[in-house]
Nucleic acid binder design. Structure first.
Lengths: 236, 236
DNA sequence: GAAGACTGTGACGGAATTGTTACAGAGCGA
DNA sequence: TCGCTCTGTAACAATTCCGTCACAGTCTTC
């Protein structure tokens, strides 16, 4: 579904045969808010990548068993893993010639020695580039409520209204599935993310805040006792 | 019979003198669903562009006979071809400043080495931008703010005002997408360039500097907490 | 009609986000 | 080289948001 800025943390696989470098990279990426998976050689990297399908790979070019190049090439062969962007670590700038780089489809290079900060920024930059594509025009309207997901604006009976990030997502999900009952569990999944460890009662609180802001349209959100909530086209 | 399912594929002309690069680009753009035309030097590119009027050009900067720069410049002279967006391929990052934003008006650039996927993303991004902003206005006006992109001048309530290069771009992007929410990521992409490795907080700082200079019009730039910024036609 | 389960409401402290200020380095022209 | 402007970053302050809780109110079931 993908309602823009998702809190769901991105998984990143880091592969380097030098434990010091590996740990340094992992630590810094963790601090930057990523879930980090580690691999100490090419084979391991390949296996983990196929199992976990991370959002991005940081591969050392020179590794025992399988080089970073080979790992990348192998991953490109399966549609499951072909689209994972790769940031390659190389020792010298000229180690990677351009055509090879193009063919294997690394998305960025960082040459050693590098600063941890630089790696984090590179990774963020590549992810940013990949994310910058979709952006679908989407407007939702139910009753007097209009949601514009591009402008990120909500109008209630023609009147612009402010919603926080969570409220906006919750409202979008409810409107998108107008008429259908949504359990608290489903809402937690789709609004807060699949790994959220949040009390289901929190949903109630946010529903309340939504209703408050919706004013006279508040009764478009029905409570279904014992199950959850549902948005209806018109109040009863 | 063949009803609708013809998504009206867009024609894209790719020009590069290295056959390997040319074919690689062509292949990837084809896979992405574009009709691809190929040219191996500047003259050929110019000729084909005039004959076929493609939706977008991907031009290598360094080419025999005519450079990408010259091709772009020549195409700007004819109203038929003046509005075709150009994505320029360059070897060095230094050349970038000369290309983007200057009189010849490349619409985006990619520095080598690049991954094929990035090229495709850039092309899609530029095409999206063209669709979104009709007519590609040289002058923008929102509230009391007037931006002249040719003279590179800004007026606030009739009063001329000085803006630095970065501020100017940021302001332009916000104004040209007035009303639409722009995430920090998108702004980094479109103002600083897609391969910038810059902290997202930098956007905040520049927004602040913009607001400072905008004076009483500062509240035309709204903060959308958790997402980014948005320019609005009138403050609240 | 009463007990129990479920939901609405208001408040609160911690966390996350943004505003603000200061600063160091790059780039540039004199 | 010296000063200047412009930029990106860091650190701190201010603000907003969010999840949780306690309690009140409502509904269901017997």
């Amino acid at each position: 579904m993908n309602l823009s800025p998702i809190p769901a943390r991105k998984k990143i696989l880091v592969a380097d045969d030098e434990p010091d470098v590996l740990n340094l990279l992992a630590l810094n990426l963790q601090r930057a808010g990523f879930d980090v998976l580690k691999a100490e050689d090419g084979e391991q990297a390949l296996r983990i990548a196929r199992e976990e399908i991370p959002s991005l790979l940081v591969l050392d070019l020179m590794m025992p068993r399988l080089s970073g190049l080979e790992v990348a090439k192998l991953l490109k062969q399966s549609p499951q893993t072909a689209r994972i962007p790769v940031v390659m670590l190389t020792a010298k700038a000229d180690e990677v010639d351009r055509i090879v780089g193009l063919e294997l489809g690394a998305d960025d290079y960082v040459t050693k020695p590098f600063s941890p900060r630089e790696i984090v920024l590179r990774v963020q930059s590549v992810l940013r580039r990949m994310d910058a594509v979709p952006a679908h025009a989407d407007e939702l309207e139910v009753g007097g409520i209009k949601v514009d997901r591009i402008r990120h604006q909500v109008q209630i009976d023609g009147q612009a209204s402010e919603f926080t990030a969570t409220e906006f997502k919750l409202l979008s999900v409810l409107m998108e599935r107008c008429g259908r009952l949504q359990s608290r569990e489903v809402l937690l999944n789709d609004v807060w993310g699949y790994e959220s460890v949040i009390d289901t009662r929190t949903v109630d609180t946010h529903i309340r805040r939504l209703r408050e802001k919706l004013g006279s349209s508040a009764d478009l959100i029905e409570t279904v006792r014992g199950f959850g909530y549902r948005m209806v086209a018109a109040g009863r």
